[in-house]
């Protein structure tokens, strides 16, 4: 059964003209799906539509067989969908550990197991756990943001440009981690600027242009597609 479905979503901010027009996306169990496209194509907007952060003019969002169209973010998170925004994705004045604890706010009871799991995935965070997240480097901050989202053991993980602004080495590390998190069974939907690398990790990809579906296919097919290559992969 499909994990997450956007069906014919037309959405925008407030009552302004919609940014997304009839966009349909889906995520299957165990998959990594990459959404690529030029700047302003509505890639991030498509993710925010899942979290009820937008005004939906039309269309539906389904989580498994339950419709979650327009539910507020805290409800969607409680259902097990975790989101890592592109910017401002850590609480800068909270320590690393407090950031992680906030990720599991809705859980009651001890968090030791979850913290151990996340520190296992991101060993550098363990020694910095009492440091304010705002003082970390960009790459480490991205780890905190990913770790925070993983504290809930999410059913679906959504990442908005997880490698934006990172050095190639760090970007490579983040892509490897995405592979590992997915390898443990978590389906991931991500928006990426870094199209070639994203498509090579992803099972499938969608190309959005001007807020509309343009292409879709397996990662390998999209890399091989001459039009996609010309537009987004640098020839």
């Amino acid at each position: 059964m499909t994990v997450l479905t956007l069906r014919g979503v037309t959405a925008g901010y407030g009552d302004d003209a919609p940014i997304l027009h009839d966009v349909s996306l889906d995520l299957q169990p165990g998959e990594v799906v990459a959404i690529i496209g030029p700047n302003g194509a509505g890639k991030s907007t498509a993710m925010k539509a899942v979290f009820g952060l937008l005004h939906l003019h039309g269309g539906q969002v389904w989580l498994g067989d339950e419709e979650i169209t327009g539910e507020p973010p805290e409800r969607v998170v409680a259902r097990g969908v975790c989101f890592v925004p592109q910017t401002e994705n850590v609480f800068p004045n909270l320590t690393v550990q407090e950031n992680l604890e906030m990720g599991a706010y809705i859980l009651t009871g001890p968090l030791d197991d979850r913290l151990d799991h996340v520190y296992g995935l991101f060993p550098p965070l363990l020694e910095k756990r009492n440091q304010a997240a705002g003082t970390l480097s960009g790459g480490q901050r991205q780890m905190v943001a990913l770790g925070r989202a993983l504290m809930l053991d999410p059913k679906v993980l959504m990442l908005d440009e997880p490698t934006a602004g990172l050095s190639p080495a760090y970007a490579q590390q983040i892509f490897e981690l995405i592979g590992r998190i997915n390898g443990a069974g978590t389906p991931i939907m991500m928006v990426e600027q870094n199209a070639r690398q994203a498509l090579s990790v992803a099972h499938r990809g969608y190309v959005l242009v001007d807020g509309r579906n343009r292409h879709q296919g397996t990662g390998a097919d999209l890399i091989a597609d001459p039009e996609v290559a010309r537009m987004f992969l640098g020839g």
Binding site: F51, L53, P73, E74, V77, P85, E88, N89, F91
Partner: peptide, 11 residues
């Protein structure tokens, strides 16, 4: 620190 991120975190 960040009301938007807090909402997205489920707080």
């Amino acid at each position: 620190d960040s009301p938007e991120l807090a909402r997205l975190t489920g707080i």
